[in-house]
Write a protein that binds this DNA or RNA. Structure first.
Lengths: 326, 326
DNA sequence: AAAATACGAGAGAACGTTTTCTCTAGCCTA
DNA sequence: TAGGCTAGAGAAAACGTTCTCTCGTATTTT
C-alpha cells in the first residue's frame, strides 16, 4: 500500500486539494504550504503520474521515433532532444523502428495510446505517406526526412547543397570519375542523389548514382562488386550516410584497397573515429544539436498555434576537409 | 473529446466490462467478441494507457538508466533490452545520466513516480551506494557495474579475466612494457585494473596502471603526456573502454605515431569501425545481446521471487585478435 | 432427473489524482 | 457601515479504465 495524496493531506491536516495546489505551485497560504511540504517530506510521498495524467488530461510527454538507433546521427539527436525536453519539464518516450514501416506504425499507435503531447519522427519512406492519420491526435515534427508535400513541420539538412559540396571538393582534388552511393529507403537519400547529379551535370561530368539497400550484407556485396574491377573502378566515392560508410569501408578493406591511394572517399555524417580512417575521412557534419533544438521548439510552437501553416527548416551542414579526398 | 471504452460498448451493445475483457483477451462469447472487435475498428478506439495503469495497478514498464549514451556499448545494450522487453509486452523508459549522480537520483525518483515494474541500471560510482533506498519500490538489476556487497542482482563482464586475456595476448606478441589505462569513475574500471595487475604480476612484469578521468580533453592530455617521451613510452596499451580509446587514438594521431609500428593498442568494447584502424584493433567484445537478455530475464524473475537471494551473473567476453597487438 | 458446478455478462466500485463548485472570511469601495 | 468582490480552502465530481460481486444460464455429476 503506497502513500497517496490523502495520506499527505491527513498528516498536514489539510484537504487533498490543497496538497495538490501546493505541488502544482499555486496560491496557498504560506503556513499551510509549509505544513504540506513538511508532510510530503515526512511521508516520502511520490505522486502517481498515471493518476495525474489521467485526471489532468495532459501527459507532458513527447514521443521520439527514430529509424535506426545504430546510426550515431540519431543517437546524437536523441540525446539533444531528451536534454532539451527535460529542461522544459517534458518526458520523452523513445523508440526505434529499424527502418521497418510496420514497427513505425505500431509505435505511432502506441503514442496515441500514451496520449503524447507531440511526436518527433524520422519517418521510413513508407511512413511519410501515412502520417496524416496521426496528425489529428498530436502534432508531428519530421526530422532528417521531410514530407514531400509539406504536410508536416520538418527540420532537415540541406541535402542537395551538401552533396554538391562533396562533389566540388572531389573535383577540386582532380577527380572526375565520382560515383555516388545512396540509400533506397529514404527521401533523404533521394535528395542527396539529386544534389549529386545536378552538381556533376553542372561540371559537365557524367553522374553515376548507385542505389544501396539498407541491409548490411547486401550493401557490402553491391559495393564490392562496384569496386572489384580495377579498370572500371571509380576514382572517388560519395557515401550517403555513416552506416552505409561502414559497408563501403569493409568492401574496400576486403579488396585490399587503400584510401585515398586507390580510391577517394567522402561521406555524410561525422563521428569521432572518422579522423583515424583513410588518412582522416572528409565528411559533412550535421548540426545535430541544432536539429534537436529546432525540432523541440517547433513542436512546442505548434502546440500553441495549431493552425499555423507548416514550416520546413533547412539547416546547413559543415564540411570537414580531411585527407580522404585524395 | 476522444473515444472511450464506453463508446465502444454502446456501439457493440455490450457492457464496458465486456469490451475490457475482449481487449485483455479473456473468455468472452465469440459472437460478442466479434461485435466488440468490429466496434473497436469502427470507432478507431485507442485505450488510454494512463487510465489502464492507474486502475490495474501495474504499468508493464521497466526503466533503463545508462551512464553514457555516447558509449556504443550502452547503445547496443539499450537496443537489446528494448527489443526483448517489447517482445514480452513491456514498455521501456529510457534515460541517460551522463555519469552524473544527481541526474541518476532524479531519474530514479522519476521511476518511482512512474511506478515502474523494475529498473535496469548502469550506476555511477556514487549511485552504487544509494540504490538500497529504491529497492523497496521496485527491483533493480545492475548492468556493467555491480554493487560491491551483492546488494543487488547484477550482470557483468568477467572484467578481470578479460583484462588478463589482453595482457596474455600482448605478452605472446613479445611485449613486456604494457601500460593499462583505466577509468576513475567506475567499479568496472577497478576490476579491469586489478585483473591487469594480477596478470602482469603472474608474468613477472611490472604493472603500470594509469587512471584516466571520464572528461575527454583531460583524458587526451594525460595520454599525450604518457606517450610523448619516446624513451619512456610503453610498448603496448590496454584501454578500459571504447570511449577512452578515442582519446587514446587522438593522442597517438596527434603525436604522429602509428599502430602497431610505434605502439600496440588493445581495448575493451568492439565497434564496427575498429577493424579499420591501426591495422584492425584487437579488442574484447562484450556479449551485449546476452547482457540485455539476462538483465531483462533476471528482472522478471525477481518480480516472481522477490525474496530470493541476489544473483550475480558474470559473462565472458570474446577476444578478437586483429593486427593492433603488434 | 435433480443438484452441483462452471462460465460468462453486467452493474457499480475503485484506482489516485486534479478540477470544479461552493462557501467563508477578509478587503475594498461607495 | 453595508454591499460587493476576491482569494483561498474544502467537498465532491470527474478522468477512463479494470476489478469485484452478483446473477443467470448452461453443463456436468451423481
Amino acid at each position: 500500500m503506497s502513500i497517496g495524496i490523502k495520506d499527505v493531506a491527513r498528516v498536514a491536516a489539510v484537504s487533498p486539494a490543497t496538497v495538490s495546489r501546493v505541488l502544482a505551485g499555486r496560491a496557498v497560504d504560506p503556513a499551510m504550504r509549509e505544513r504540506v511540504v513538511a508532510a510530503v517530506r515526512e511521508t516520502g510521498y511520490r505522486p502517481n503520474l498515471a493518476a495525474r495524467r489521467l485526471r489532468s488530461r495532459h501527459t507532458n510527454t513527447i514521443g521520439l521515433i527514430v529509424a535506426d538507433i545504430r546510426n550515431p546521427f540519431f543517437t546524437a539527436v536523441a540525446r539533444m532532444v531528451e536534454g532539451i525536453a527535460y529542461e522544459r519539464g517534458l518526458r520523452v518516450i523513445f523508440s526505434n523502428t529499424d527502418e521497418d514501416a510496420a514497427k513505425e506504425a505500431m509505435y505511432l499507435h502506441l503514442m496515441q495510446e500514451e496520449r503524447v503531447t507531440g511526436v518527433i519522427l524520422a519517418p521510413t519512406r513508407h511512413g511519410v505517406d501515412n502520417i496524416a492519420q496521426y496528425q489529428s491526435d498530436f502534432p508531428i515534427v519530421l526530422i532528417d526526412r521531410a514530407a514531400p508535400d509539406g504536410a508536416c513541420d520538418s527540420v532537415v539538412l540541406d541535402n542537395g547543397a551538401m552533396a554538391a559540396k562533396l562533389v566540388a571538393h572531389l573535383h577540386e582534388r582532380g577527380h572526375t570519375r565520382i560515383t555516388g552511393l545512396f540509400g533506397t529507403a529514404t527521401v533523404t537519400g533521394n535528395e542527396r542523389r539529386t544534389g549529386y547529379e545536378r552538381a556533376m551535370a553542372a561540371l559537365g561530368l557524367p553522374a553515376h548514382a548507385v542505389l544501396v539497400p539498407h541491409e548490411r550484407a547486401e550493401a557490402e556485396r553491391i559495393v564490392t562488386e562496384l569496386l572489384a574491377d580495377a579498370s572500371r573502378r571509380p576514382g572517388a566515392l560519395i557515401v550517403s550516410n555513416g552506416v552505409m560508410l561502414l559497408s563501403v569501408l569493409r568492401a574496400i578493406d576486403a579488396l585490399g584497397l587503400s584510401i585515398p591511394r586507390d580510391i577517394a572517399v567522402t561521406s555524410f555524417d561525422n563521428e569521432p573515429w572518422m579522423e583515424f580512417v583513410g588518412g582522416g575521412l572528409s565528411v559533412i557534419e550535421q548540426p545535430v544539436e541544432e536539429i534537436g533544438r529546432v525540432a523541440v521548439t517547433m513542436l512546442l510552437d505548434r502546440l500553441d498555434h495549431a493552425d499555423q501553416v507548416t514550416r520546413r527548416v533547412v539547416l546547413a551542414g559543415r564540411f570537414l576537409a580531411r585527407g580522404s579526398g585524395g
